[in-house]
Design a binder for these strands. Structure first.
Lengths: 174, 174
DNA sequence: CGTTTCTTTCAGTACAGACTGAATATACAG
DNA sequence: CTGTATATTCAGTCTGTACTGAAAGAAACG
């Protein structure tokens, strides 16, 4: 993977762009794309060269990918350097990312909504309306959490089954 | 809504912060939060004052919220200014946002993956592996699209039903 | 029409976060 | 130990996006 083919470049650049739109660092996303396409684990040095970014930038970005659990370091016999490889199971990868983001963003929001509802002084102007709106939003986040907890326990293979069930429900409702 | 209560401030600030983490402009998110909590439609001027941002910034941000379909302008008798109000149905709001983001981000990614698979020259080094990886990723995006199309047609009330079905599937699988 | 009120556009500025490269730390071999 | 290879940290710089304020543009009145 010293030289990138046209298709690989296309994928990596798009993935980086996509990352920025979802609040994920462009370099982090690009490195992930590169590792995902690579049949073998790559040392940081090679990643830096291939993507034309600073070696230190790779170090930080790999750390981030590791905390998400979608990239890990492996060792190669006769080479002292760490080599990094990406998880290949796409569903599992997204599940992990979603789980992390839930923990970092959904959970704190849920917490904030609870605190708001608790802090809400019934005597302040429009308290009833505020409570109603905050309550609706809190309900949404509760449901999302419930949905996520269930998803966590559904094995990858079952996802397609769920998809088909969705179709049935739709037909009944329609 | 001339003065914000402590709880309102808390909600608006958190929502703005949350926005930035998902690639949504902080001001856009804050304005949405403000309108969501407001029992009556607000003129741009008042939004600008309440949030301490430039009047022009409000104009641009409202436009963005309007293209998502979660905020609309309404007219108040005896007032020439446009007043803006947020949709209150939380599920519907998120459905709209997800739909837009799918169109802007998921669809182009799906397209890119198709193009990559089409452009892939079988003679280039590691073509088989690349095809395998791109194929897996493409499959994921196809499934996500399918899931989204179904969701679009499920009425809000049915969502909780789906949640319960998820539980059943999990129990069978477990 | 001219005036007033409100809205949008846009060129310039400010700022947050990404990125770099030098310095530092760590691991290993001889 | 000493020297070398690799990894990490961090202060400073750079860049892209958000934001501002002034100016232009619409719309509503008299």
């Amino acid at each position: 993977m010293a030289e990138l083919t046209g298709v690989q470049k296309q994928y990596i650049l798009h993935w980086g762009e996509m990352g920025t739109r979802w609040g994920i660092n462009r370099t982090v996303a690009q490195i992930h794309a590169l590792l995902y396409l690579s049949p073998k684990a790559l040392p940081a040095e090679e990643i830096a060269e291939t993507l034309s970014v600073a070696r230190s930038n790779v170090s930080t970005s790999i750390r981030e990918l590791e905390t998400w659990g979608i990239v890990r370091a492996v060792h190669v016999l006769g080479d002292r350097r760490e080599h990094y490889e990406s998880m290949k199971d796409v569903w599992e990868m997204f599940r992990l990312v979603i789980e992390q983001r839930k923990r970092r963003e959904i959970d704190p929001t849920r917490e904030m909504l609870r605190r708001c509802l608790a802090d809400l002084d019934p005597k302040e102007p429009g308290a009833d309306y505020t409570r109603e709106r905050l309550g609706a939003m809190a309900g949404f986040f509760e449901a999302v959490t419930e949905l996520h907890d269930q998803m966590k326990q559904v094995p990858t293979g079952t996802v397609r089954k769920l998809l088909r069930m969705g179709t049935k429900v739709r037909k009944k409702a329609g």
